[in-house]
Design a protein around this nucleic acid. Structure first.
Length: 305
DNA sequence: AAGTAAGGCAACCGCCATCGT
DNA sequence: CACGATGGCGGTTGCCTTACT
């Protein structure tokens, strides 16, 4: 069937420069609307949907095209995804210059990495197969030692059955190491999830890292990582890991960039997003701070000897 | 140098909500 | 109220690039 008489066949695929120009001209004249009229006027052989998508994702002003997600942006996405679910358009409103497609793609990539990591951790045969990022790395992880941050249950060796030493030689030892090496993510209660995660006896640190509201908490410098900032030894780490209080953000779409997410004194949000998802393994990983993935990969790629 | 796997990204598809007639 | 057109959104696919063997 011909495309409605005089109209040429619908064009698909990558956009040409000329098409972009036509689209930009249309928007300049009529604003970002009436997408379907672009085709009906014979300006472009693209559907209105396609035009709109092109505008939203590529031609709109102030887009951060080609820029990788910053650590802060990643953190925001992770927090908001935990809060809203896969509401990419909504999440994107908190990220100036980012589109829902950007967020979606970012998340998708992240999930793939996680999936691959998990698979590696459960299929030892594949663990040996190097992947792109799994080249042997001289990754010195002194700061990833079990943090001595609290006296709460620090001395209770029984509550930490899996030391991070190399004495454990199970097939997925590397994977276990990965998680042994992780700090108490976000909140201690998060770790209530999956005692049998990876290993039946797997029992993450019962350490409770307390924040002291009296101390001068320094918010996490943007773009920093646990190890680089020595945060594993930071007594304020619990504050640092406090989930973003999205309920506040929700009221005000404006999201000040460069915002210090974790106020020194701040209201400790009672909105504990993380705990809501504790039963869900996938969600468990979703809560990981952005940098953690990189840490995990580095750890998992560490030479075994 | 060639082959391959993974990452990143752009674009399409299908569903759904809204709006105008 | 019903229906079609349109736009918005999330999921998915496919292509290109990069890194590694």
């Amino acid at each position: 069937m011909e495309e409605s008489g005089s109209q040429e066949a619908l064009r698909k695929g990558p956009w040409k420069l000329e098409e972009d120009e036509v689209l930009l001209n249309h928007v300049k004249r009529f604003g970002p609307r009436d997408w379907s009229s672009i085709r009906s006027k014979g300006l472009l052989q693209r559907t209105g949907k396609s035009c709109r998508l092109r505008w939203v994702n590529k031609l709109r002003p102030n887009l951060k095209n080609g820029c990788k997600f910053t650590a802060e942006e990643e953190r925001i996405v992770i927090e908001l995804q935990a809060q809203f679910g896969n509401k990419w358009a909504k999440i994107a409103t908190y990220l100036p210059g980012r589109t829902d497609n950007d967020v979606k793609n970012f998340w998708s990539s992240r999930q793939k990495r996680l999936a691959r990591l998990l698979q590696n951790s459960t299929t030892p045969s594949k663990l040996q197969r190097s992947t792109r990022k799994e080249k042997p790395v001289d990754f010195d992880v002194p700061s990833m030692e079990a943090p001595k941050l609290s006296s709460a249950s620090d001395g209770d060796a029984s509550s930490r059955p899996m030391s991070c030493s190399s004495s454990f030689s199970a097939d997925n030892a590397e994977a276990v190491d990965m998680f042994c090496s992780l700090p108490d993510l976000y909140r201690p209660k998060l770790l209530g999830f999956g005692q049998d995660f990876l290993q039946p006896e797997f029992n993450p640190f019962p350490i409770t890292i307390k924040s002291d509201p009296q101390t001068n908490f320094h918010p996490l410098p943007l773009g920093s990582t646990f190890s680089s900032q020595g945060l594993l030894h930071d007594p304020n780490i619990d504050i640092f890991l406090e989930p973003l209080d999205v309920s506040q953000l929700d009221n005000e779409v404006q999201f000040p960039f460069g915002l210090q997410f974790y106020e020194p004194m701040g209201r400790c949000s009672s909105h504990d997003v993380v705990s809501e998802n504790v039963e869900n393994p996938e969600s468990f990983f979703n809560e990981f701070p952005a940098d953690i993935l990189d840490q995990i990969e580095l750890l998992s790629s560490s030479p075994e000897n």
